[in-house]
């Protein structure tokens, strides 16, 4: 019964004399390897040259600020809930009067930690967030000596203030165009 038209007959012929003599095959192999001597090398000399990431690469998270520089996160916990790796923990706190420029909503996360060893960089937290507060950037978690160092707190997650704050929509827009281009 013929199941597919692509079936190939395999037969176990005894080797011919030339095949048994190895030498033609050996020289053929050596020609192949010598050709590789002149091929373009795939090595990326890392610290000097960095590999180009895909525009939709998912790396270390960033907790964004809004256009006034206030943290967007309201500690709703949806990201933690959506996280398949259970990498996110947070502690909510209430905004005190006079802290409006620091936190956008009345409730904010006083502690927000992501364990980078648990995280699988799936991006579901980004999708779940109703406040567009968390985004995955294109940087990779750096190497560390202890496990504890891989638990990133707010000090390493919140978008730094000194940088000109990019409007969240612009960020989204950039991503979308990049994604479309990549496709």
């Amino acid at each position: 019964m013929q199941i597919t038209s692509r079936a190939k007959r395999v037969d176990k012929k005894p080797f011919t004399f030339l095949e048994r003599a190895y030498l033609p095959a050996i020289f053929g192999g050596m020609v192949i390897t010598i050709k590789h001597l002149f091929k373009k090398k795939v090595t990326i000399r890392y610290p000097e040259v960095q590999r180009e990431f895909s525009p939709v690469y998912r790396g270390v998270h960033m907790l964004k600020r809004d256009e006034n520089g206030a943290e967007r996160c309201t500690a709703c916990g949806l990201c933690a809930l959506s996280c398949p790796a259970e990498a996110i923990t947070m502690t909510a706190d209430e905004r005190k009067p006079g802290e409006e420029n620091l936190y956008r909503e009345e409730k904010y996360a006083s502690v927000y930690e992501i364990n980078m060893l648990r995280c699988i960089f799936c991006g579901l937290c980004e999708e779940a967030c109703p406040k567009e507060a968390i985004f995955l950037t294109d940087s990779i978690p750096t190497a560390n000596f202890t496990r504890d160092d891989f638990t990133y707190g707010k000090d390493r997650l919140v978008e730094p203030l000194v940088r000109p704050v990019k409007h969240i929509n612009a960020f989204e827009e950039e991503r979308r165009t990049a994604w479309n281009k990549a496709r």
């Binding site: 390897t33 010598i34 590789h36 001597l37 091929k39 373009k40 090398k41 795939v42 090595t43 000399r45």
Partner: peptide, 13 residues
């Protein structure tokens, strides 16, 4: 070096 080059790498540099 040669091992690297024959395998499309650069070898120790």
């Amino acid at each position: 070096k040669l091992a690297g080059f024959l395998q499309d790498r650069l070898g120790p540099d």
